[in-house]
Amino acid sequence: MRAPASRRPEPAENLSAAEQKAEKARGRIGVGLIVPGFVFLLLFFAAPVFVLLAMSLYAKPPGAETGVFVPAFEVSNYVVALSEYWVPLLRSFLFAGIATVLALIIGYTMAYLVAVRLRQHKLLAAILLVILIAPFFSSFVLRTQAWKQILSDEGFVVEALRFVAILPEDGRLTATSIAVVAGLTYNFLPFMTLPIYASLERLDTRLLEAAGDLFASPMTAFRKVTLPLSMPGVFAGTLLTFIPASGDYINATILGNNRDTAMIGQVIDSRFFKIVDYPMAAALSTVLMVVILILVMAYIRKFGTKELF
């Protein structure tokens, strides 16, 4: 039975009964495919985030033991969170931002080398690609600890830097902001490099020849052709680096000090486990998540591409 055209003018809706049935059956398969994962996410992502939001408003009853809280609507938790911890919060985004920019520069250079310059040298490119992925396979914590040792006051890096007077006689690298940012840069580098590599690998180098043929110098060809065409990779890479880096606390804990390198992740962790102040930890987590979401949305608005997801 065909619906009268006057009532349903849209051609997409104007389907025969058989077509509608087929469409519905396909829809059911689709729903069937996503339901299990969806339920899982509802239970273990959406609900927890909700619980976290609720918990961030809990209150501590007067005279209660440590770790005992009651449901409430204690908005002042947020006031305290922001007024007491705005410094580590800002620092987290600052460190993560610097690390993202550094990782972008380093990661782009590596990805470009492997994907474009060494395109003809398949085996060498493959081996370098392995090295790119390699850090994934050796423990994050172990690597960070290794950096601590390498940058330690007795290590050769510090001695060398002192020798060439880049670092003053009593200068050090561990327990400084520099070490923390360097660690963040290092640890999230593969997340930056791989998406850029993936988009550069698809680049048709004949386009660069065409640009050269049309009077573009190699540098201009890079700016006008290579860079724009690798933007989806840059976009994904910066997000995949910035988001985890801003919440990370391993680097700050291992490579930093407790005073002027603390990041918000450290604070959340210690609120949860040392001080057992769940509402404050939850409020800080919420703030972190909301700020990241706002930043990410703004970023997608400004530079977003549809190809990302």
Binding site: L41, L42, F45, A46, P48, D248, Y278, F309
Partner: peptide, 26 residues
Amino acid sequence: ADILIILPLATPEVVLGASLLAQFLN
């Protein structure tokens, strides 16, 4: 559905860890 699936990617691990902990405690 798209958004729900992408959101965990935009969530830092501390937040994910903390919210799951809150849920398990709950």
